[in-house]
Simulated scan of single mutants.
Amino acid sequence: MKQTKQPAASEMRSVEQTIGKILRWGVVVAAIIMILGLLLYLINGSLGVATNYHVKNFHEILFGILNGKPYAIMMAGIFALILTPVLRVVVSIYSFYREHDSLYVVITSLVLVILLTSFWLGIEFHL
């Protein structure tokens, strides 16, 4: 009986470490992207958009990045920061699935649906 608990505990520790790495790297990548946007802003002296302008969709961010606009690059950094905990939820669903813990798979999947719905509603009502 101890042999079955030991691998499960080490596997849980491994999943927790993976989730920790995802969160750390997500923040680091987002910070690097935002710093690049800030440096580009300081070099250009302009954000690359009109005053009081707000991006309305991801296509505008992508188009702005391709054109080297600092505002779009900083928005991509914020987008990466927002996606970091979402990726954590996805990894949690996978780890609960591997542990055959159906209750937590359902609960965590519901959390993911709520997150994605809130993003969708935020986009719809922002336009």
Rank of each mutant, 00 (worst) to 15 (best):
V89L: 04
H59M: 03
Y71K: 02
I43L: 07
R88S: 10
I43N: 12
E99C: 03
A8S: 09
L115Y: 07
K2W: 04
L121R: 13
G122H: 10
A30V: 07
P85I: 15
L47T: 11
L47A: 06
G122T: 08
S102N: 11
I32Y: 12
P7Y: 03
A8Y: 00
L62Y: 01
I123F: 13
I22Q: 07
K5Y: 14
M74P: 00
L103W: 15
G48S: 07
W120H: 08
V27N: 05
K56G: 12
K56E: 09
T84G: 13
A30K: 01
H59N: 04
V105S: 03
Y41P: 11
Y71Q: 03
L81R: 04
F125M: 11
M34E: 09
A80S: 15
Q6F: 04
T18K: 09
I61T: 02
V111R: 05
E60A: 01
E99S: 11
S10Q: 14
M12F: 08
P85N: 10
Q6Y: 02
Q17I: 14
I73G: 00
A31V: 14
V91R: 13
S10V: 10
K21H: 03
I32Q: 04
L42T: 12
V105A: 04
L83E: 09
N52I: 06
F125G: 15
F79V: 11
N57W: 02
S14P: 14
V91G: 00
N52T: 10
G122Y: 13
L23D: 06
V27M: 05
V15W: 15
V27Q: 04
E124N: 07
V49M: 09
I19W: 06
N57P: 02
Q6N: 14
M75K: 02
A72P: 00
K2G: 06
Y94D: 02
I107K: 12
P85Y: 11
I35A: 08
Y94H: 12
A9K: 12
T18C: 00
R24S: 15
S14F: 09
G37R: 01
F58N: 06
S14W: 10
R88K: 13
S92F: 10
M34T: 13
G122I: 09
A72W: 00
I61N: 01
V90K: 04
I123G: 03
V29A: 15
E99Q: 14
A76K: 01
L115F: 14
V105Y: 10
I32M: 07
M1F: 07
G122Q: 05
R88C: 06
H59W: 03
L39A: 12
I43K: 06
A80K: 00
V49S: 02
D101V: 10
I32T: 04
L66C: 13
I22N: 05
N44Q: 14
R88E: 08
F79K: 03
E60Y: 01
H59T: 03
I65R: 02
F58Q: 07
I114K: 05
T51P: 13
V89M: 00
W25N: 14
L38R: 04
M74F: 03
A30W: 01
A72Y: 01
T51M: 12
P7F: 01
S95E: 08
N67I: 06
L116E: 06
R13Q: 12
L127F: 13
I82R: 11
V29I: 14
F125K: 10
Y94Q: 08
N52A: 09
L39S: 11
G77Q: 01
L42S: 13
Y104P: 00
L42P: 15
G77D: 02
L83I: 10
A80R: 01
Y104K: 06
I73V: 15
